[in-house]
Design a protein around this nucleic acid. Sequence first.
DNA 1: CGCCAGGTTGAGGGACCTCAAGAGACGTGG
DNA 2: CCACGTCTCTTGAGGTCCCTCAACCTGGCG
Lengths: 269, 269
Amino acid sequence: MTVVTWQAGCSSCHLRDFGLCQAVQGPQEIACLQSVRQPARFHPSGRTVFLQGSRGIPLYNVLSGWLFSYQLLPDGRRQILQFLLPGDIAGLECEDSMGMTHGLETLCESVLCTIPREGFRHLIDSCPAVAEHARKILARDMILLFEHMATLGRRTARERVACLLLELVVRSGRSTCLTNGMSLRMPLTQPILADALGLTAIHVNRVLRELREQRVMELAHKQLTILDTEKLTRLAGLPDGMMDLWTGQSTASGVSRTSSQAAVQMRRL
Amino acid sequence: MTVVTWQAGCSSCHLRDFGLCQAVQGPQEIACLQSVRQPARFHPSGRTVFLQGSRGIPLYNVLSGWLFSYQLLPDGRRQILQFLLPGDIAGLECEDSMGMTHGLETLCESVLCTIPREGFRHLIDSCPAVAEHARKILARDMILLFEHMATLGRRTARERVACLLLELVVRSGRSTCLTNGMSLRMPLTQPILADALGLTAIHVNRVLRELREQRVMELAHKQLTILDTEKLTRLAGLPDGMMDLWTGQSTASGVSRTSSQAAVQMRRL
DNA sequence: CGCCAGGTTGAGGGACCTCAAGAGACGTGG
DNA sequence: CCACGTCTCTTGAGGTCCCTCAACCTGGCG
């Protein structure tokens, strides 16, 4: 188990004003945060951080790297639930005494900052804003999950791929706007995409080829290139507010849809 | 719009010690809760509570009835996200200033207790346990969503139907145990099941027939009958802790799975 | 009584899966 | 440095699960 740890001050952390920690302000509170968390640890690529079913798992703050949480069915089928990027936090959705219903793995070399449950409770006591912010983070994650559910349940394979890659581009860039020809590193394999999208790796491969041939996007050697932002966003068919949510803005969503009865009528047209 | 309202004291509410309100204890706090919420309202079956995209939506506490939240794609495809039963609460996943990314509809006659955002903030200030409990509720809902994602992404149509109906039986019964021949009312139509499970109503129909013919369960006239609990639970293939979560127990989960690499190997066998 | 949403069944098609085989990429150890 | 194994990527052929379309029946409600 190659795990490197090092010590650095919370006040000089590059995520000082992002994610959960941004709720901790003021020298006294930051000191408390620092006393409560453990030194950041380096995790190599493709390793398990914790397994589904394990207990007493702490919170993990993603300082750098990409990870994913997943759930296994008894026969080994795997569903990827979330992708975690720097600034995201894992473990908030778990109640103390429960076993984890899901596992966590790294997609590439990652650095995680650990906060034990005990310490987290202590932090909340001395800094109530943390509890409130944790709620907001959970609420945001929930809305991301809703979108994923719509993807899994109601989108075609091409739409699924477009949606997910678009989400990851936006989330990883955090508010840089999309431009044709932009290229960025994405530590995703086709089996990973498949398990996230409810498809097989083989079909993901065919869809990616199709998207490449139609000059929408290209994914090779873990490098994603956007060729046609307009086609891509049209394909994804996302509600208006989604992009802002990904970038961390909580500006208003302009989504305006009719009732589900109207939707049934629409499907009939 | 036929909406009936009435007034009754929080202290005599049949959900006094369930759901979010159970976090409010002590006469002073209960008085605050009561001052903050609005009179309970009756909503007829099949009506919209709020539309996707609407803003300034309060919290809704489900006193009685069944509801579902859903998300529409631009072309009218619908994904049902959650079923809400008495004791559940809607709106926690929404941040104040944002438009709702999803809508809410009644499945049958329902009574909802409304708590405006403003009042909720006030309640949290005078009763910090509410914030903590809201976090727990969000966390529990998240884990339910994870299971739904695994269902949508990785289970077959028959497994999906079995999973969902099993979940709803357990959640609606709250800790009554399953027995062969038990029968209970479930205000679900096949189109609703379809939109929850990522299938078509026609296919849901065929699956239900199959389950009926195999004497696993029967769903007719909104009445569900369990014929073979063992076959049913086997079909659903749920992790061990799930049942407890549905019934509201937070006993420990005994799920113990191998790493995702092992899962890949399993799939190869 | 008539309407309409929901339920039921059949025929046919398409999206996605399974199986199979080979090539490329990458890390590991000799 | 190369050899090797493993994982990933790629493509083809064939099959299946689920969808689409269409028709008819049923039951609840005004």
